[in-house]
Every structure is written in C-alpha cells, then in structure tokens.
Amino acid sequence: MVYSYRQTQDFKRFTDEELVESYRDGNEQAFTELYVRYERKLKRLIYYYIPDAEEASDVFHDAIMRVFRHLGSFDTGKSFSSWIYQIAINCSKNYLGKTARDIRMIEEERFRLSRVDGGKESPEEIYISESDMAEFNRSVSLLKEKFRTVFLLRYDQKLKYSDIAKILRCSERTAKWRMEKAIKAIARHLSEKGVI
C-alpha cells in the first residue's frame, strides 16, 4: 500500500485518542501516525532499560505488538500516551527480569549521556570533562529503579508529572518527590567523586 504525504499530514491535527478511534473505524493509517509519533520516544525509553540496540529493538516491537493487540480494549477516555508508556516500561521490565543475570553484568553500560554542545566551554567556563560525564552516567545507573524511571521520564521524555504519575500509578506528589530524590542522589554521587 502506498501512502501519500498529504494523507499522512492530515492526521497531524488528531489527538492520540482520536487516532485510536479512527483506527478502530478501519483506518489503518491512523495506527501508522501513532507509530510515527511514538517510535523514537519508546525506543529511547526502552533503550535506557535494555542498553543493547538489537535487544531494545526486539522489545520495542514486542511492545508495539501488544499495543496492536489491545488497541481494541483501550479506553479512549484515558490518556493514550500514559497507556503506551506503561506497556513499554512493562515490556522492558519483563525482559529485564528474564535476563537479569546478563543485565547485571552490563549495568555500568546502561546509560550513555553525551554533551549537547559538543564539549564547548560554557559562558561560566565550568569545565566538564569526559570523565565527569562518565561519572554522571554512572550516577544515573546507580539510582534505584523507581527514582531512575521518574528521572528518565522527566529528564529525557519531558513528560509532565501528572503523566508520569499515571504511568507509574502513583500520586503526582510522589513523582515529584522521586525526581527530587534522584537529583539529590546524583549530586551526592558526583560530590563524593569530586566532580562537583
């Protein structure tokens, strides 16, 4: 099947939930639009749990298949993004549970952070070296899982606390508290290592 650019563009104005309804009405392109909207976001999220591109790709497809299968039962009165993130996180956790031994061995390699500006010095001339970044990576990887998940959803996915709360089935206040704890733990680690 060939999709024209114009046809795909038309879906841009729909909300996620409207796209789900459109898909249920038999419009397969609606799912394609949802896929395009969430592909990169989900892959990034899954990759933080499973730091292997190939395995992360498998889990992503697993998650997408689940979304496919259960799209019929999705309650369009609720947030689609929360639902799809939930599925992605659950798929990742399931995968981690099954391969816990292997994952533990590569714990150190889980997070890879890079500088956005390619290493130029900031106006304040605070020098951030490669080893500082490595230590930061390490501090994120050492966070407890519940803190790390909030940190990732907020820091990388830029989700609102209300959405994070829905995904993690906790209160918004708890999500904020976890984010604060995560940054404190990172600061503590970096301070101990002499980075800050």
């Binding site: 892959k43 990034r44 990759y47 933080y48 997070f111 890879r112 952070l113 890079s114 500088r115 956005v116 500006d117 900031s122 304040e124 605070i126 951030i128 500082d132 970044m133 930061f136 990732l152 820091y155 990388d156 940054i183 990172i186 600061a187 970096l190 980075v195 800050i196």
Partner: peptide, 13 residues
C-alpha cells in the same frame, strides 16, 4: 556545575 551537566547533556541512543 551539576546544573550545567543536567542542562547540557542528553541521553544518547
């Protein structure tokens, strides 16, 4: 410096 690291970094995929 912590703020700098948090603001000037992104998770790499």
């Amino acid at each position: 410096k912590l703020l700098q690291i948090l603001e000037r970094s992104e998770l790499h995929v």
